[in-house]
């Protein structure tokens, strides 16, 4: 049980994913919601790499994890641009106050 195997990595990734969901659901600040998304992407990556090591997939799991990192970078850039626009329009980035698409 104490010896580290596949299940340990899967459990860590599951807990990290749950923290990500918790952050997305409870935080009001839009940037904090983005941080929750980053946590969830990281947990998915841990799963990819763990199965790449313990399954018979060679290094393909690691390669997919690399692609996920690229997607996360693009997503963060676009989302922050949108958040800046929201701040300019509404003077606030609290996601519970923003309920219209334009002024």
């Amino acid at each position: 049980m104490l010896n580290v195997g596949l299940n340990h990595f899967l459990v860590i990734s599951a807990v990290l994913f749950s923290f990500g969901i918790f952050g997305i659901v409870t935080r009001k600040n839009a940037v904090m919601v983005l941080m929750g998304v980053e946590l969830m992407l990281n947990s998915a990556n841990i799963n990819f790499v763990a199965f790449a090591k313990f399954g018979a997939f060679g290094n393909q799991g690691q390669l997919i994890a690399l692609f996920v990192v690229v997607l996360a970078a693009a997503e963060a850039a676009i989302a922050l641009a949108i958040v800046l626009n929201i701040y300019k329009t509404f003077n606030s980035i609290n996601v519970d106050e923003i309920d219209s698409l334009k002024e």
Binding site: A30, V31, L34, M35, E38, A76, A77, L80, V83, L84, Y87, I93
Partner: peptide
């Protein structure tokens, strides 16, 4: 990038 987002908003 996230820190910039925090600072600018």
């Amino acid at each position: 990038l996230l820190l910039f987002g925090v600072m600018l908003t």
